[in-house]
Amino acid sequence: MSDIWTLLTILMLACFVGYFVVWGVTPALHSPLMSVSNAVSGIIIIGALITAGGTEMNISKIFGLIAVFLASVNIFGGFAVSHRMLLMFKKKKTPGEKK
C-alpha cells in the first residue's frame, strides 16, 4: 500500500491526533474511555479477517479464525459495556447552570 516512511508519517500524525483528542476527554468519563478504546482496538480484526478468509483450511486460517473470535469479543463487549456505562451518566431532572 505504501512505503515505511509514509506509514511512519501517518503514525506520527495519528499520535498527535490521539494526544489532543484524549486530553479533551472529561475525567468523569475515563472509565468509558478505557472501554471504548478497548473496543476500537479490536480493529485488529481486519488483520485477522484477511488470513482467515482463504478457502483452504490450514494452520494460518485456524490462527486467523481464533483471532477473529477474540477480537470480536473485544469489539462487541467493549462497545456494549461502554453503552451501558454511558446510559448511566444522567443530568439532573431540572438542568443546573454548572458545567
Binding site: I10, A14, V17, V21, V22, V40, S41
Partner: peptide, 10 residues
C-alpha cells in the same frame, strides 16, 4: 496504525 496509535495515546 491510526486507530492503534489513538488507543496507545489514550
Amino acid at each position: 496504525i491510526i486507530v492503534g496509535a489513538i488507543v496507545g495515546a489514550s
